[in-house]
């Protein structure tokens, strides 16, 4: 059997205990949520932390609640299955429920968490392999090597952000709440709340800006516009289990007259960071959903997406084909959102 490296497991019952453990062990420690990403990565010797800190026993990190202001607050340790089936999420943030429902397979959604998916390591066909395989290759830029095999001669890692919930949360304008170690002499919790857009950086080695020792505790989704609609589209080979070969999240704000008042599209599984498709509101705002003009606008938006989204050979399979699917999935997902339908998926 493929072995896990040896490590010590800590299972703090409170956030303070967990923070103390990270403070004590520094970079020797890693957090584990559902383990569906970290455990395979550890078996592949991509990470060999001395201490693994499980967040599973910290009750405060789990749950979905709607604040009096209509904000959706989801604990980072809430499972993807719970996010997908939550009626609050389905009503207030359908794009997120859809994205969560298409992640991996049923068992992995029962184990995997929303926080874990947000914090997912980037993926690449030259990286997510066993130690033997990577040794035979001579390693890659992301781990232990000096060369990128995706962009040969490239100096930057282009491993792909592969988390379906990331683009969904970006279209929703979500914020992430991190808690860090409380500085000496302070008593107040050291909270840092950032827009999810500010999390990302365009570096496949680590594609997130985080502070040492902090833990993602919650995801906050502001109340959406009255006519909010959303949908998620996912390209993958099989009807389950696979990571996205391309994913796109759509938000449409629709007025009482069915005219679009705001829109956003985010794409994932291209390069290191998920990204917004730019200038789409210029095309969509003012169009009545379902009209011919809306359909033409959707076509133009699909073209914009095609120009802006360039999948690379970081995922298995044919990158040219993935690129060809960008406008198709963007268009289908926009129409699905407009109709209050979705997700867009081949099965």
């Amino acid at each position: 059997m493929l072995r896990l490296p040896k490590f010590e497991l800590e299972e703090p019952a409170t956030l303070d205990e967990a923070l103390a453990l990270f403070a004590e062990h520094g970079s020797d420690a890693m957090p584990i949520a559902g383990g569906t990403d970290l455990v395979p990565n550890m078996k592949h010797r991509l990470f060999e932390p001395k201490v693994v800190v499980s967040l599973a026993r910290i009750e405060a990190l789990t749950g979905i609640r709607v604040t009096s202001g209509g904000e959706l607050e989801i604990g980072a340790m809430t499972t993807l299955a719970d996010v997908a089936r939550s009626s609050a999420v389905q009503e207030r943030a359908p794009v997120l429920a859809q994205a969560a429902s298409l992640i991996a397979g049923p068992q992995l959604r029962t184990m995997g968490t929303l926080g874990g998916n947000v914090m997912l390591d980037t993926r690449c066909q030259w990286y997510n392999q066993t130690h033997f395989w990577r040794t035979s290759l001579g390693y890659c830029l992301k781990k232990d090597g000096t060369e990128c095999h995706v962009v040969q001669g490239g100096g930057k890692c282009v491993a792909a952000a592969s988390n379906d919930t990331a683009p969904a949360l970006m279209t929703l304008g979500a914020t992430l709440v991190f808690q860090g170690p409380t500085p000496p002499g302070e008593s107040k919790a050291n909270l840092r709340e950032i827009a999810i857009d500010a999390l990302w950086k365009a570096d496949g080695i680590v594609n997130k800006h985080t502070e040492p020792g902090e833990i993602l505790t919650a995801i906050r989704i502001p109340a959406q516009a009255a006519g909010h609609r959303g949908a998620y589209g996912k390209l993958r080979d099989r009807g389950s289990i696979d990571f996205p070969l391309f994913g796109c999240a759509v938000r449409l704000d629709v007025g009482t007259d069915e005219a679009v008042t705001g829109a956003d599209i985010c794409a994932v599984a291209l390069v290191a960071r998920p990204s917004h498709v730019k200038r789409i509101e210029d095309e969509l705002v003012g169009q009545r959903v379902g009209s011919d003009d809306f359909a033409s606008a959707v076509g133009r938006v699909a073209e914009l997406a095609y120009k802006q989204c360039r999948p690379m050979d970081n995922s298995p399979g044919d990158a040219d084909y993935r690129r060809e699917m960008v406008p198709v999935y963007v268009r289908r997902t926009l129409h699905a959102a407009a109709q209050g339908a979705g997700p867009v998926h081949h099965v």
Binding site: S136, R238, G239, S240, P316
Partner: peptide, 28 residues
């Protein structure tokens, strides 16, 4: 439709796992 057993340009198996070797599920 789905499965392919091949090596990459280095002669390394392109994806020696049940994740990358795409076997259909019941749904497929």
């Amino acid at each position: 439709l789905l499965e392919e057993h091949d090596v990459n340009r280095f002669g390394l198996h392109a994806g020696p796992s049940l994740l990358d070797y795409r076997m259909p599920l019941s749904i497929d």
